[in-house]
């Protein structure tokens, strides 16, 4: 479904990704793990069109999307739930969710989608008219995920969904991600919390200093010493 082929990418003259390739098949949950600064976020930003690769290409369902503007990528059906939640602070929860359904294919059916999404996030139903900025960190993350789902994407990408959340909330976030995955959604997820993600994923890639050094089934990666080494230097 998604293929990243030999991509070099970065900001300005700075190269962050070197010859990065990865594949995500329909219905799969794939994760990219790696230490801070390894280039995980840049990989997701490249897929969503926020960063244009210097060489190589990004293909979605066989078509090249690496030259598209971010809004065109969203229209194709790829939605990124960004790091740090990035809500619209002065809008209500309801408006935030409606913004998620801005995509052409999602706008017409947004009331139905809203119903479905609120089924997954019952807590948000009680908060619909509150300002997004008045929510707790965990609730904001839920809004961010729900907003991403409102686009009815074909591929949903998560960037560090557990960042800065208390352990108990992290559990809840991963419960939700598992539910989303179980619903048949194709998911690409980038996470610090290696254990949780590998548990939730089918396959994983290990990114080190902008290069893909390892890819394997998620269970196998949990056992792999290389992962520990990358994070803890032991």
């Amino acid at each position: 479904m998604l293929e990243v082929r030999n991509v070099d990418a970065g900001y300005g003259s700075t190269v962050i990704l070197q010859d990065v390739s990865l594949r995500v098949e329909e219905g799969e949950v794939v994760t990219i793990v790696g230490a801070n600064g390894a280039g995980k976020t840049t990989t997701l930003r490249t897929v969503s069109g926020l960063v244009t690769p210097k060489t190589g290409g990004v293909f979605f369902e066989g078509e090249e999307i690496s030259k598209l503007q971010p809004h065109d990528v969203v229209d194709r059906g790829i939605t990124l739930i960004p790091e740090g939640r990035q809500l619209f602070p002065d809008m209500s929860v309801r408006e935030n969710l409606l913004m998620g359904a801005h995509r052409r294919d999602a706008r017409g059916v947004r009331s139905e989608t809203l119903e479905e999404v609120l089924g997954l996030f019952p807590r948000l139903g009680e908060r619909l008219d509150q300002h997004a900025s008045s929510l707790s960190g965990g609730e904001q993350q839920m809004v961010a995920i729900a907003r991403g789902m409102m686009a009815r994407p074909r591929l949903l990408m998560f960037d560090e969904p557990s960042l800065g959340l208390a352990p108990i909330i992290v559990e809840q976030v991963f419960d939700v991600i598992s539910k989303v995955a179980a619903s048949g959604m194709t998911v690409l997820i980038v996470e610090q919390n290696v254990w949780h993600t590998l548990k939730a994923a089918d396959r994983g890639y290990v990114l080190e200093n902008g290069e893909m050094v390892l890819d394997d089934a998620a269970d196998a990666l949990i056992e792999n010493d290389h992962v520990r080494q990358a994070y803890l230097g032991i």
Binding site: Q86, F88, H102
Partner: peptide
Amino acid sequence: TNTGRAIRATAQNRAAARLMGIND
């Protein structure tokens, strides 16, 4: 309106607005 909301969203968080598929 949808357009009005998109305008406000872009003002409040441009990066997120682009990720929602808004042509900033």
